[in-house]
């Protein structure tokens, strides 16, 4: 056996725990999504100005929450990887990135679908949408750097440095984009600041947020598993070549 498996001993425990969680996460996701979508799309009141269009918000806003929190989670995970050199840390950041990018993309698409009836155009350089777009670029860069290294452990460290710098920058970017938007705000345009918080609206939002979180968890477990097994496969192949 060419390479020590001790480096991958930790993943064994990780795999065991996540395998136990996985079916529950999947069930909870289905339930929450069903309830959340019913509350959001049928039970919630229509807005007196926006009509049924306001219901896009229930898909859009939690997706934007997820987009931000997954990036933060990746940064924390990468910091853990850099400091304590835990082998699963880098892999879990890597596994989370495409899911985060998908949520960002969902937020962008639903945002522009909402914008069509509101603004009369699919894209307005609204502060929130613009920040989302930049966040999407950050996700793309993160995924690209993983693909650009042959050595996966090097790729992990490089991606960790990048995501940490990115995480420091995210609030600055958010602030600068808001600033830019107030400077250039044309008068009397509806903004995407979301509906006014009211309990009939808050409940579906929160349920959808939880549904997305458990959806994330479900896909995340599959992806981390795939990463760990992929890494093992690579090592076995190398051993095969060398023997």
């Amino acid at each position: 056996m060419a390479v020590d498996l001790h480096k991958f001993a930790n993943p064994a425990r990780f795999l065991r725990i996540t395998s136990a969680i996985f079916p529950w996460a999947a069930i909870v996701t289905v339930l929450l999504l069903a309830v959340g979508l019913y509350l959001a799309l049928f039970a919630s009141p229509e807005d007196y100005q926006q009509g049924a269009t306001v219901r896009i918000m229930f898909v859009h806003v939690p997706a934007a929450w997820m987009a931000m929190s997954i990036y933060v989670m990746m940064a924390i995970s990468s910091a853990t990887g850099l400091i304590w050199k835990h082998p699963v840390a880098d892999l879990s950041a890597k596994a989370a990135a495409p899911i985060g990018a998908c949520f960002t993309f969902l937020a962008l698409v639903t945002g522009s679908l909402w914008g069509q009836p509101m603004w009369g155009t699919f894209w307005v350089w609204d502060a929130r949408l613009t920040s989302m777009l930049i966040l999407f670029f950050l996700y793309l860069g993160y995924m690209a750097i993983w693909g650009s290294f042959d050595d996966q452990s090097k790729a992990g460290k490089a991606a960790a440095i990048l995501v940490l710098i990115g995480a420091i920058n995210v609030p600055i970017i958010k602030f600068s984009v808001d600033w830019w938007n107030t400077l250039h705000q044309p008068a009397s345009v509806a903004t995407m600041d979301g509906p006014k918080i009211h309990s009939s609206i808050l409940t579906p939002l929160l349920v959808m947020g939880l549904a997305y979180t458990s959806l994330f968890l479900t896909i995340f477990i599959i992806r981390v598993k795939a990463e760990i097994l992929g890494r093992r496969l690579r090592i076995l192949r190398l051993a095969h070549v060398e023997d």
Binding site: A2, V3, D4, D151, Q152, R231, E242
Partner: peptide, 12 residues
């Protein structure tokens, strides 16, 4: 040098 171990690209 004591018990040095070198792994490059998952290869010992």
């Amino acid at each position: 040098a004591i018990n040095l171990r070198c792994i490059r690209q998952d290869r010992l």
